[in-house]
């Protein structure tokens, strides 16, 4: 019958069909195996409790010219009390490469030990590699309590 016709005839067509059918099958099979593996590698989003404010301590217990790291949800926040007794708070995560900053009383700056980045006490990046200022938080004094909350 027609199946035995020359090189461009139905025999070739049938061979092409089989080639694509089997080739496609292999690709689909690979996809079916690899997709779950790749999807498995992506960590699922963890449901985080949205924190809007935290209690950082009692005003009387925070010394002047000091800085402390406060846990804000799962992020570190630095609370600084300057020489005039005023409290300010910033994200303690350096905007350069994610290290945690500290208050340097001797230099009067917020300092990152990883790459010598410096911010002034208003959170502005003043020297070193940090590309932008630290995110600012709001400090509320309620009686004796010092509260830190997100800026809106």
């Amino acid at each position: 019958m027609t199946s035995e016709v020359g090189p461009t005839g139905p025999k070739e067509n049938r061979r092409d069909f089989l080639k694509y059918f089997l080739g496609g099958g292999v690709v689909a099979w690979l996809g079916a195996v690899l997709y779950p593996i790749l999807a498995f590698l992506i960590p699922p989003k963890q449901g985080e409790v949205e924190v809007t404010s935290v209690k950082a301590g009692k005003l009387g217990e925070i010394e002047k010219e000091s800085g402390t790291i406060v846990r804000f949800g799962n992020k570190p926040v630095i609370l600084i009390r300057n020489s005039s007794g005023e409290c300010v708070a910033f994200s303690a995560t350096c905007t350069h490469l994610d290290c945690t900053v500290q208050y340097r009383k001797d230099l009067g700056v917020i300092w990152c030990a990883c790459h010598n980045g410096r911010y002034d006490l208003k959170g502005q990046n003043i020297s070193g590699p940090p590309p932008r200022p630290l995110d600012e938080y709001r400090v509320i004094i309620q009686g004796e309590d010092v509260l830190i909350s997100k800026k809106v």
Partner: peptide
């Protein structure tokens, strides 16, 4: 401790040090 500041004098292992040092010389922008 995720809620401690990075300690002073922190440095990478010596075999990453040249890249670390090079990055210090590159301006922020």
């Amino acid at each position: 401790d995720a809620f401690a500041s990075a300690p002073a004098g922190i440095k990478p292992e010596w075999y990453f040090l040249f890249m670390f040092q090079m990055l210090k010389y590159i301006p922020a922008k």
